[in-house]
Design a protein around this nucleic acid. Structure first.
Lengths: 165, 165
DNA sequence: ATTGGAATGTCAACAAAGCTGACGTATTAT
DNA sequence: ATAATACGTCAGCTTTGTTGACATTCCAAT
């Protein structure tokens, strides 16, 4: 290891470096949510609706309970969101076949249209960031984010990524 | 470039890869805020207080207007937070010397104590994530986050990082 | 067959933290 | 003098989270 590398290795865990990472996370998250937010505010929906729509699209036929575990909110909070989405015909709720207590959620045609619109906007910024940073940086980005997650959420994150690719 | 690298280069901008990055961001942000949140909920403060305290600590003697630009909220929203912090003796507000319309903000001893407590908790997780991911990954992490920011916020982010290192 | 517990839905009340709009008061700039 | 800026504050509203309570439906075990 050369001197420069040694320096880098000894520096990147310093308070100042870690603090800058925290701030980067804060500022980047604003960019992350901005484009979908702008689309949503023209409708009667918010970020909570986006999140529900995203994960229903991602795991079609997921149950309410599963969604609760992913989103980390109370059932009352999620229910309020789901109720409006179902009433507006964006989400469909079906009684489970094997276990009839469960409700399986999926997007309707209209729901899928909105999902695509939101998703396209959010991915566009993300893809441009990826492109400008390059594949090595992206790999590092993903590695650090995974390491930041709570273990149980990391498990869910991995499971979602593996399901249909 | 070998075949494996070519593959990687052509794959990392795919919808699926970008989507996984979006989800990683979502799950990681929860881990990011969790430790300070747990400290704050034992007090009468929330995430908004944490953000104010963080950036006042980071840029001592910053003005209200400057803080508004960084946090991206309305003055009414920030004022509600600052009022309680000042009333509780965590933040001090001084009339500006050159421009007496401005208020310059700084943490009191007690405010600095809380800031350290919150900061230590948040940095601990972040540092552990950095350590396990390694310096290359961390560099990539920072690069992608910067690319995700809105240009005006990126400028502020860079300026904050450069001020006293 | 009954019963305990799990999954779901819903009502009510509340809190945090964002927003708009309006207004007041210094202070500075033109 | 007048206009613009920086700040504070009041009032009211929205979104999204929270508890707590209670009903329904259904599975599974006794």
């Amino acid at each position: 290891m050369g001197e420069a590398q040694l320096d880098r290795a000894s520096q990147y865990l310093s308070d100042e470096q870690v603090r800058q990472g925290i701030e980067a996370m804060f500022f980047a998250y604003r960019g992350f949510t901005r484009d979908p937010d702008r689309i949503l505010e023209t409708m009667a929906y918010g970020r909570a609706h986006h999140r529900a729509i995203h994960f229903i699209a991602r795991s079609p036929s997921t149950t309410v309970n599963n969604l609760l575990g992913i989103l980390g909110v109370t059932k009352q909070s999620l229910n309020r969101v789901l109720r409006t989405l179902i009433a507006d015909g964006l989400v469909e709720s079906r009684v489970g076949e094997s276990d009839k207590r469960e409700r399986h959620l999926r997007l309707t045609e209209e729901g899928a249209r909105l999902e695509r619109q939101l998703s396209d906007a959010q991915r566009a910024r993300m893809r441009e960031a990826y492109r400008s940073a390059g594949p090595e940086a992206v790999a590092g980005f993903r590695t650090v984010l995974e390491a930041m997650m709570e273990p149980d959420l990391r498990r869910k994150y991995v499971a979602i990524g593996e399901q249909d690719p």
